[in-house]
Design a protein around this nucleic acid. Sequence first.
DNA 1: CTATTATTTAGACGTATGGCTAAATATCTA
DNA 2: TAGATATTTAGCCATACGTCTAAATAATAG
Lengths: 95, 95
Amino acid sequence: MMDAVFKALADPTRREILRMLGRGEMTAGDLAARFPISGPSMSHHFSTLKQAGLITARRDGQQIRYALNTTVVQDVIAAVMGFAAHETGKKGGRP
Amino acid sequence: MMDAVFKALADPTRREILRMLGRGEMTAGDLAARFPISGPSMSHHFSTLKQAGLITARRDGQQIRYALNTTVVQDVIAAVMGFAAHETGKKGGRP
DNA sequence: CTATTATTTAGACGTATGGCTAAATATCTA
DNA sequence: TAGATATTTAGCCATACGTCTAAATAATAG
């Protein structure tokens, strides 16, 4: 599960999509218009992000509105913090 | 730069290496012995992590001791937090 | 129902990635 | 110096990834 999440984060276009969605919901079209790659390629990125759980999709008429899934984003933060959380003998928390 | 970091994090073996180094410094050999893949393959993973700045290497006799670079790990955390940090109209901080 | 707009699915293509074995390099020991 | 141990570098191979164009699906407008 985290495997799909980290793989999704590996691509710079997808990270930029996440940053944009961080400002609020956007339609697939609006999002795609801001990148120099084809619609189908963007759609594939959406699919990757969605299956990783990083974004959610909901249909609104003929458009699809994508939104950031902040819950999973927080899971990522926790996972990364986990890398350094086991240092022994290091001063933990805030002083 | 963050590009190399996120790419490095995309592989589960490399994430596991980081977790192990989170417990403290280890030699290339000790680290490699804990994975079911060849030494050369492990060496390549070390190289990827090192060039991403996620780990540091220092020679100690005939061995190389690897250590987690917590500074860069924190940069990753900051970067991921940046995805969700721009939500408008959401209640921020802790309640 | 037909046409139009929005988005995804399918298939193809070149490059990147992760794995392996064999060979090279570095350091210590006899 | 020769030999043993630790680690990396060099090639090779199969699979995964990101991109594209063409075609399919979904929903709205006439």
